[in-house]
């Protein structure tokens, strides 16, 4: 059946031009990612420069940018590290529960519940931490101060409002929990079924199987995921801003009313009211935060990527 009178006579548009434009656009979008990241660093540096070069007594606090940022950096690290110490083990056990213990039919739904924790906006965690969690910690904090007061963390005196570093840490832990859980679950999902079956075939109980076949496999994922969580906790702003009652000192006392602020919370509190050099100083502290989280995230991604190269699961 000849079709010869049909389309080869039809003019085709210049495919070459279209291809070149589209390839150029998408390559440009790829490069834009790198440009934006470089731009974040560059623009923050430019706007921070006046504060970095100003005489120390003109910077808010009167002692220069470094001494302005230092207590904030301390508070940031303190809250993030303790939040991680709480969240990481919990996240691993939750990932184990969802992957290996929950009934098959429910597993996905239960995993979704954990993911919902990540969907709650941080301002809501802040309001909740302030109204519900903070008052609830006053009693237990008193007990801690009375019985474990010799530990510097629980030295007291106990804050009457509960707006302490401890509450900030707990809220941060809740917020980074779903992030760590998601990465660890993904790693557990990639554990070769054969390893699990081999362990079961040796007569292992479920826990022995997990220890033999699953946990070693997931180790670097747990490390990478924890660092991701750490990065998130370092940069979390609103929840800390609302929950924490700040006095600026450098202390590891978690339950008193004299708490160091964090970089992010300090920016959120000060920025709307600031002008001139104060703005530049805040941007300088933001630059420090960017550098720290960038380094942590790069390390985390490197660990996670290396794992997937060596996993051999595919």
């Amino acid at each position: 059946m000849p079709l010869s009178e049909t389309p080869s006579a039809v003019a085709r548009p210049r495919p070459r031009a279209g291809d070149r434009v589209f390839a150029g656009l998408s390559t440009g979008a790829g490069l834009l990612i790198l440009v934006v990241l470089a731009g974040v660093a560059a623009f923050l540096l430019v706007e921070a420069w006046p504060a970095l070069t100003a005489p120390p007594e003109e910077v808010p606090g009167g002692r220069g940018v470094a001494l302005y940022v230092w207590p904030l950096l301390f508070g940031t690290a303190l809250s993030a590290v303790f939040a991680l110490l709480i969240a990481a083990p919990l996240a691993v056990t939750i990932a184990l529960f969802v992957t290996y213990y929950a009934p098959r039919a429910l597993a996905q739904g239960l995993g979704y519940l954990i993911d919902l924790l990540a969907a709650v906006p941080s301002i809501i965690y802040g309001l909740w931490g302030f109204t519900v969690l903070a008052p609830a910690t006053v009693g237990p904090s008193g007990w801690l101060a009375d019985n474990l007061g010799f530990v510097p963390l629980f030295a007291g005196p106990v804050s009457a409002t509960g707006r302490t570093m401890l509450v900030a840490i707990l809220v941060l832990a809740v917020m980074i929990l779903p992030i760590i859980t998601a990465v660890v679950r993904e790693a557990f999902r990639q554990v070769p079924r054969l390893h699990e079956e081999a362990a079961h075939a040796l007569g292992a109980t479920r826990w022995e199987m997990l220890r033999m076949a699953v946990l070693p496999f997931g180790r670097s994922a747990v490390i990478g995921a924890s660092m991701l969580g750490l990065g998130r906790a370092l940069g979390e702003t609103m929840a800390v801003t609302i929950v924490l009652s700040v006095s600026g000192g450098v202390t590891v006392n978690l339950i008193s009313s004299g708490n160091p602020s964090t970089i992010a919370a300090d920016i959120a509190l000060q920025f709307p009211e600031s002008t001139g050099l104060a703005v530049n100083t805040l941007i300088a502290s933001g630059l420090v935060l960017f550098a720290v989280t960038f380094a942590v995230n790069m390390a985390a991604r490197t660990v996670i990527n290396r794992r997937s190269e060596f996993s051999g699961a595919n």
Binding site: L31, I33, L44, L228, G231, G235, E236, I283
Partner: peptide, 28 residues
């Protein structure tokens, strides 16, 4: 590989830093 890596890293930028970036860009 480089872009994939930095897309992942970009996921971790604190939201306040993103805000400061936009401010710095427009302030300039």
């Amino acid at each position: 590989a480089v872009i994939t890596f930095f897309v992942d890293v970009m996921t971790g930028i604190p939201s306040i830093v993103a805000g400061l970036f936009a401010y710095a860009l427009f302030a300039l």
